[in-house]
Amino acid sequence: MKDEKPHLIEEYEITPYTLLISPITYGSKTYSHIVELDDEYISPFKPIDIIKKSCHYFGVSYEGRKEGTRQLIGVTHKAPIAINPTSSMFFFPTTSPLRPHCIWVSLEHIERFSRVDMSHTSVTFKNHQQVDLPISTSSFENQYMRTVFLKDKLIQRIEETERKYFYLHSHAASEKTAKFRKYKEDH
């Protein structure tokens, strides 16, 4: 991470620039350390609260996104979340989101990851920032692959819907053109 001190902010919604959200402890309270491409922030909210608030910001509930993940890929435990699929904002937890030390990682920004030791994984983001996370590499890879699978399934559904819409729209347009030609011939 950077050497600069993170900015304290009151409100935060996940953006396409968010790399990860990790918990930090201030006294007896859990805050969030938010890492973006070019900046870092401290929020007085827990990481799960930021995930939930960000889902609501994009018009869905966290519970609805969890249920969508279960429907699409059958994952219920440590489920990846599509905060906003149209902006490729897919996040996955490093442990159960109910645990206080759960870190949320953005799929989109991961360049590579490698094993540090039995219980730590080094993650390098596309902007060359590197962070060691307290998760085994096999667990991290499992979470990563689940999130890739979720993203692929959602993109397939979106593209399928767009193809159907395009077909119906172009089919209706060609029918209107044919009716117009027939009308012109008859008059």
Rank of each mutant, 00 (worst) to 15 (best):
I158L: 04
K151W: 09
S136I: 01
K153P: 06
F149R: 03
E111M: 06
A79L: 15
F113E: 07
R99A: 00
I158V: 10
R146M: 01
H120Q: 10
I158F: 04
Y144W: 03
I135S: 09
Q156P: 01
S119D: 04
L107M: 06
Q143S: 14
R163A: 13
T161L: 06
I103Q: 04
A82S: 08
I135C: 02
R146A: 03
I81M: 01
M145E: 09
C102R: 00
S122M: 08
I158S: 12
Q156Y: 05
S122G: 15
V105H: 03
T124H: 14
P134Y: 03
D117C: 05
W104H: 06
S122K: 14
I135A: 05
P80H: 12
M89D: 08
V116Y: 15
N127T: 10
Q156W: 01
S136D: 15
P100S: 07
I103A: 03
V131A: 08
T86G: 12
P134S: 04
A79W: 01
E108L: 07
S122P: 05
D132V: 12
Q130V: 07
I83G: 05
S136K: 02
M118H: 07
R163G: 14
L107Y: 07
H101F: 00
S87A: 04
I103S: 06
I110N: 05
F92S: 03
N142H: 13
D117L: 05
A79E: 02
F166P: 07
F149N: 14
F91S: 08
E141A: 11
M118N: 12
D132I: 13
P97K: 11
H128P: 11
R146E: 00
W104S: 02
L107P: 10
R163S: 09
R99E: 00
K126Y: 13
P93Y: 06
E160M: 13
V116D: 08
R146N: 01
S114H: 10
E108I: 04
I103L: 02
I81S: 02
Y167I: 09
